[in-house]
Design a protein around this nucleic acid. Structure first.
Lengths: 157, 157
DNA sequence: CGCATCCTTGAAATAATATTGCTATAGTCC
DNA sequence: GGACTATAGCAATATTATTTCAAGGATGCG
């Protein structure tokens, strides 16, 4: 698939497998997708180079590690002018407790997923940082009670 | 930290590093956290065993791979009886397009993050599967226009 | 205060894996 | 059909993972 830019069945199998287990060895991956290790590794590298694979992450158990509170925050801005948006996004990127941020349609402008050690820290962040930030008009939070499914990524059949 | 259950500074460095780069070699990881490879690997294994690390995943570029539509769906159920909840969750787990599901406080009962190739497929899923599912009372969707930040996991300083 | 115990580290050796170089083969386009 | 391109796989090498084991440091108790 190097230059052509088209993914074949083996590429998709590689992607699916790596999405499920990002630390599988190349030997095992090769076996699963039906190749010998060298061409398999070459494909993985090509997929990385081409940006189909953007990185690898360990999934950590937030609760066990003392991060017990997660909320969704829907944020409305006062001004949606280009420069204001950019500034808000920059702020969001600088807040460690905000792990994900999406521009959304509908009533709010942004949907944030925030993670913190406890309710107090979360409240502190929402009131003192988020709500108080320049250009923030409204913040509506939804507390996450439990994670029922977590398979981030894409549905590869 | 094996049996004591207490994480020291090195364990935290390991977790932070692996959250950022899940495919780093043990040699490199060891160097970063200030250990030689053998004890470093032992700690990683211990962290996995103890469930602090629950897995590794490749992050795929959804857009490049043809999954261009993501929505949040807030779902309200008619009945929140234990068995009904369980059934709904089982259904959610079986839908590939639902990648994440959270029980939430507030107006809705569940927040779903759904991923699909296009608006049509998403509409199809929402109308024919989600809204039509037994015990589903209300579905309110929010289209994701753009991903501005994506650092899933926890804020390890 | 000193000794025994427990835990963890790191050096060395070994096993496994990743990676490179090269040749062969299959598919494609004149 | 013949030349070209792309990709597979074998073989060799480099790198990494993993095991084994002896030594060092902390802790608790006599």
């Amino acid at each position: 698939m190097t230059v052509t830019g088209h993914l074949d069945a083996i590429d998709w199998r590689i992607l699916r497998t790596l999405q499920e287990n990002g630390r599988i060895t190349n030997v095992e991956l090769a076996e699963k997708v039906g190749l010998s290790p060298p061409p398999c590794l070459r494909r993985v590298r090509a997929l990385e180079e081409a940006g189909y694979i953007s990185g690898y992450r360990a999934m950590l158990n937030a609760e066990k590690l003392g991060f017990e509170v997660m909320v969704f925050a829907m944020v409305g801005l006062k001004s949606q002018a280009e420069s204001e948006l950019t500034q808000f996004i920059a702020r969001v990127k600088a807040w460690p407790m905000v792990r994900e941020c999406y521009a959304v349609s509908g009533e709010a402008d942004f949907m944030l997923k925030c993670v913190g050690p406890n309710l107090h820290a979360m409240q502190d962040f929402i009131i003192k940082d988020l709500t108080a930030a320049a250009n923030v008009d409204s913040v509506k939070t939804t507390l996450i009670l439990r994670q029922e499914k977590y398979e981030p990524g894409i549905p590869i059949t």
